[in-house]
Amino acid sequence: MYFPGKKTILISIIFLFYFISIKAQSTTPKFNVIAFYTAKNDKAHISFVHEANKWFSKMGTQYNFTYDSTTNWNNLTAKFLAHYQVVLFLDTRPEVPEQREAFKKYMDNGGAWMGFHFSGFALTPSTYPQNWDWYHTEFLGSGSYASNTWRPTSAILRVEDRKHPATKRLPETFKSAPNEWYKWTNDLRTNPNINILLSIDSTSFPLGTGPKLHEIWHSGYYPVVWTNKKYKMLYVNMGHNDIDYDNKTDKELSSTFDSEIQNKLIIDSLLWLGRGKK
């Protein structure tokens, strides 16, 4: 009968601990993501939020990060945010001064953020007035909402910066998923802190179907994805699905995650944000 020697046993134990360590590393989340959302009033925004929660959860399994979401904006505190490396705003923004201050400190201290579509909206007077200068003017740089296209339609998007980690896998131009596109009061090109990653390509025009004439764009320059060099952040104008408003069925006619190329942009943006502090 063979009895292994002490050296053989020791080597076996070392290999056992090695493989346990490798297994532990593969299951340990690379980073933690928390998404805040409201999901009220606009059916297209609600549609996006629901599918975003499902999609990001699936991506978390695939790319090894944890994904949590909440409608409780009171969780926007330093203590709560300390557990997360990336914050998402899926539709709206914080309204309470204490929440806003906690988010600002989180970003000032090297936190990471990605915002979608309506999270950048501000219009005075409205339910979401421009009453947060740091967020809309300094952080986003966009100022207030100026106008939008209608109905939600796809656009040909042009990559402005192909060296950024969020855009490295994208072609020079690609077709987006249907979206309602925003115009802003500020010209982001004049802001030295803003790095525009994607804009609407001129081949998209006319963009929108109306029925109102001002809802159809025929020319102009419209950034749709950008970063602020002072922060670890990225804003994405996508996040408004097409809904059957005309027949009042509320049927979802499109998905923000229909475009594989656009999905590469979103996941690569998130992975870039999750790599650590700026």
Rank of each mutant, 00 (worst) to 15 (best):
E172M: 07
K175D: 14
R162Y: 14
L170E: 12
G141P: 00
N179Q: 10
D161R: 03
A166L: 02
R158I: 14
L157T: 05
N179L: 08
W150T: 11
T137W: 03
T149M: 01
L188I: 12
I156L: 05
F139K: 05
T173R: 06
E180F: 00
S144W: 01
K168G: 09
G141M: 09
K163H: 13
E160R: 15
E172F: 01
N191G: 04
W181E: 10
L157P: 04
T153P: 00
T190Q: 09
L157A: 11
N179V: 02
K175S: 13
F139Y: 01
F139G: 04
P165A: 13
N193G: 14
W184S: 00
N193P: 05
T149G: 03
L170K: 00
S176V: 06
N148E: 12
N148V: 01
P152R: 03
E180G: 00
I194E: 08
P152I: 05
F139S: 04
Y145V: 08
K183M: 03
A155E: 08
E160W: 00
E138M: 11
F174A: 02
Y182E: 07
R189W: 05
A146K: 07
L157F: 07
T173C: 08
E172G: 00
E180K: 00
H136S: 01
K183N: 02
R151D: 10
Y182F: 07
W181F: 00
V159M: 03
L157H: 06
K168F: 11
S147N: 08
V159A: 09
T185E: 13
A155F: 06
T173L: 07
L170Q: 07
H136G: 02
F174I: 06
W181D: 03
P171M: 06
D187A: 06
A155H: 00
D187W: 05
N186F: 14
N179F: 05
R162P: 09
F174L: 10
K168A: 15
T173S: 07
D161M: 08
A166E: 11
S176M: 05
K183L: 05
W181T: 06
P192Q: 10
E138C: 04
A155V: 14
E172I: 06
F174V: 09
N186Y: 12
W150A: 10
T149S: 13
R162F: 08
E138H: 07
S144I: 05
W184D: 04
I156V: 15
L170V: 07
T190N: 07
P178S: 12
I156Y: 12
P171K: 10
R151F: 15
P152Q: 15
E172Y: 01
I156E: 15
L188E: 05
W150M: 08
N186K: 11
S176I: 11
S154D: 09
N179S: 05
N193Q: 13
N148I: 04
T149D: 03
R169P: 04
P152D: 09
A146S: 09
R162C: 06
A166S: 12
P171A: 00
